[in-house]
Design a protein around this nucleic acid. Sequence first.
DNA 1: AAAAATTTTCCGGCATTACCGGAAATCAGA
DNA 2: TCTGATTTCCGGTAATGCCGGAAAATTTTT
Lengths: 252, 252
Amino acid sequence: MAENLPVNSLRTAFDILETLAARDGMSISELASSTERPKSTVYDHLVTLHELGYLVERDGSYQISSDFLRMGDVARQRLEIYQSAGEELQRLANETGEHASLTVEEHGKAVIIATEEGDEAIPVNIYNGIVMKMHTAAPGKAIFAHLGEDRVSEIVETHGLVERTENTITDRDDLRAELAEIRERKYALDDEERLMGMRSVAAPVIDRGGRVRGSLAIYGPTNRIDDELFREDIPDLLMRSANIVEVLMNYD
Amino acid sequence: MAENLPVNSLRTAFDILETLAARDGMSISELASSTERPKSTVYDHLVTLHELGYLVERDGSYQISSDFLRMGDVARQRLEIYQSAGEELQRLANETGEHASLTVEEHGKAVIIATEEGDEAIPVNIYNGIVMKMHTAAPGKAIFAHLGEDRVSEIVETHGLVERTENTITDRDDLRAELAEIRERKYALDDEERLMGMRSVAAPVIDRGGRVRGSLAIYGPTNRIDDELFREDIPDLLMRSANIVEVLMNYD
DNA sequence: AAAAATTTTCCGGCATTACCGGAAATCAGA
DNA sequence: TCTGATTTCCGGTAATGCCGGAAAATTTTT
């Protein structure tokens, strides 16, 4: 983090933007202390970002503008896997009644780029753009299993195998074994490895060139996702859907 | 546009980001010529943005990362009107079979921050974050009608009354009269004023303090939206929903 | 294969400007 | 109206964004 960037002011700008995204309606003084920068500097950036249209002033305080929504949406639209997965996500959510989501890897992290809520879906924090460590939940592991040995090591090197619950995989050899097993059986399981009380299942989506593009997943509370659902029914649904997405994806 | 900003490098950075959002998978050289800046400058920014995580390298070319999706989504979640309108949007889409959307004003423009597609919805370009001129379609006009004389003048001053179709309101007095009528009858109509073949209807959402927070709208093809739907049924649905959103919004 | 062409990455110097302390202006509350 | 807090503005300067050009890497052509 302490390293020098070619255009340092961008760090300041995005620091401010991220702070505003995290907590809303902050005053300049608050922003200044949160980002640990002089008020005048923060002010310069706020004025600039506002002028460019990326901030909006509402009720006397600054907020992130919908430009980010637009840019994010456009970027997402352009992902082939997103285009192809829409229908299946919806279907998975309907069939299971739980949260269904589409995840891709970016910068060594698992990013949820789309979610659909089934009728029973727990009102848990699963929203667009949320980022998770690769090793903690099923979607990340499903992708992880198909990334290639060195890329995995590289990512583990950078982000570590942080323990989230007592079930989290924190040992490299354990991870290696787990990933091999996932490759073997074609889907990944997370039994309260990221969050106590939550299980997730995921199947990778692999393109014609053999590269993993992302994964489809179902999340649900442990009490509802019994062993049969967890290890048989849901994996089957996911593998079916993943397969369909793979076919759709390779049309053009 | 030629004016000087306190932090000029941000213009460069967002120029690059917007260019990348618009056209995907551009090489550095292409980006340099598109943004009319030296390659080395573009390179500096790309490296910085990549390091910060806002760009992703895929297949040897840069793309906007899902961070924008996250930031946009978070910003949107924080809008009270968005929280309150979710259910109603869905319902409107179901009831009409057309596109239902939620629009707010930002920087004098109408921004669609949420859409739901009904069964019959035309596969038209209505997506999150899309920006329209206030005077062209129903959602913008519905908001416009409740902004206050001087704010309207200010916006018209800045953005003009650009003609999109032969039906577009391009005269200030006509606009003033139209807005008065909208206030009167409580909803706005757009009869192919923005796009030939498309009609839209919108109802404003006004908070307890009398301030307009946004509008609910239905879009559909002229041949399907006959006069009765256009002037009676859809307005009724929208006014009902807008009213519900208003109530929900003022709970806390 | 080698060479040529193109693109990407890197470097270094200079003019620019991002940064920030402090002052002025504005706002909020009593 | 006064007071305290916050926002806005200003100006000097150390830092750095910018960019030409060269090196490295990649792709295309012969």
